[in-house]
Design a protein around this nucleic acid. Structure first.
Lengths: 249, 249
DNA sequence: TTGAAACCTGCTAAAACACGCATAATCAGA
DNA sequence: TCTGATTATGCGTGTTTTAGCAGGTTTCAA
């Protein structure tokens, strides 16, 4: 077997699986691991792959991370925001949670929308209040260091006293089996109270979060009125949700 | 499974859910918790995540606001902050307003201070909550677009129900003649309610604002227990205030 | 205050690695 | 086709990296 031929084979494997193990290649081609290592090293120097201990990974695979303020999957979240804006009408009263998707939405609300927003997230509140025609009311309470939203009994109490047209929540986990789920007990309590306070419920979730589950159940899928993802409503990925009693956006 | 692959997986989980638990990752990938911990530690050292007890949280979640904006008279305000820190004791309950001085203070509170902070400013709340020994409670209400603090009747109501050790307020106007003054009627109402809720009152003000008056009166000078400026207490500029029943810092 | 969970440190075995060297394969030009 | 030069490959040896584990300590929350 020729060297180039071998490296082409390795390249194919990497394109196929995003990674290769030196041992695997060695076994597959019946060559010594040393040779594989040498190949990988060479290919890494040519910039074709990323060499790591144990094998190599695809160059395009290096995970997304920007040290500063880049939000993960921002494009998708902005798409979601655009879709939600269509749900918002003048003189609506809306209740929102926190999360980066919600912040993207808060930024991109059109300035001419005249509405009232209740929110448990100070970050969202600060973004919303930049729009002239919005009335922003913070549901105060103990601020959670990890999720940066207000939680605790006083939040639940306040939520019991209000009734809003639409509740906007980000989903942490969402699946046909388990419904909407979350990982934190306190968060679940607050989300439930928020859902109770709203006539309609809209859940936003990037497609990646669909079909994932967390430990605690927030609500059933049939309580959800709108499910907003960055995908087109007829995307096959959403088909499990299509029969259900919710509108896909 | 390759190490980098594993870390990419963790990174993805963090981007999706804003946090991960070591135990969860360990279970999901069938690897020991030690390995997960080592990964998280490594990733934290590279600045990719924030390590916390039990797991790690997203870095972009860590308050992506204006990192270092030009604040007017920032040096002076930081000096003031340093002086106020000396007033803060463990297990104190403090009530604060908003303003850039207050934010500077919130940033520079020592991490080992264990205390409870009530605040009407979402920005201050978000800064305070970064200190792990602080309990932060937002007094919620309508968010003022101009001053970025919560105002309105519900704030007054909530303030009526609490009693704190110390109230920290920035002054808009302060003079021997007129006492503490402000320009906005709503703000005055809130400040009065805050003062009522506190055993002691500390006013912070850059020297520039001393001897200036606004239209509305908030309180008399003799209600003030501490006056904090960036000047030394024996500065001649402060002499008009020296005879009064307040401590100059 | 106390018990459980999370953590750290040091250790071990196995895997992956690097390096030198001997041998095998390849190639260019006569 | 032969030959010498060049390159590629496999192997032995010693080193480094990695992952799990044992134990003692810290942290957290009840």
């Amino acid at each position: 077997m020729l060297k180039d031929e071998r490296q082409a084979f390795i390249m194919r494997q990497i394109n196929l699986h995003n990674k290769v193990l030196s041992t695997d290649i060695s076994a597959m081609l019946n060559i010594s691991e040393d040779t594989v290592r040498r190949d990988l090293k060479e290919m890494a120097e040519e910039g074709k792959v990323l060499k790591v201990h144990g094998g190599a990974i695809s160059r395009s695979f290096h995970y997304p991370f920007n040290a500063d303020n880049a939000v993960y999957a921002q494009a998708a979240k902005q798409q979601i925001a655009q879709k939600i804006i269509k749900l918002l009408k003048n003189d609506m009263v809306v209740l929102t949670g926190g999360g980066t998707t919600m912040i993207e939405l808060a930024k991109s609300i059109p300035d001419n929308l005249r509405a009232t927003f209740f929110t448990i997230s100070p970050l969202v509140a600060l973004e919303l209040v930049e729009h002239r025609n919005l009335t922003v009311i913070s549901i105060g309470g103990q601020l959670s260091p990890s999720s940066h939203v207000h939680m605790g009994a006083s939040v639940i109490n306040q939520l019991a006293d209000i009734k809003v047209d639409l509740c906007l929540l980000g989903a942490n986990g969402l699946s046909v089996q388990d419904g909407m789920t979350d990982s934190d007990w306190e968060v679940v309590q607050v989300k439930r109270a928020m859902i109770r306070a709203a006539k309609k419920l809209a859940i936003m979730s990037i497609a990646e979060k669909l079909n994932s589950s967390q430990r605690m159940k927030v609500c059933d899928l049939n309580q959800i009125n709108y499910l907003i993802t960055e995908l087109a409503p007829d995307n096959h990925f959403l088909s499990p949700y299509r029969q259900l009693d919710m509108e896909l956006l």
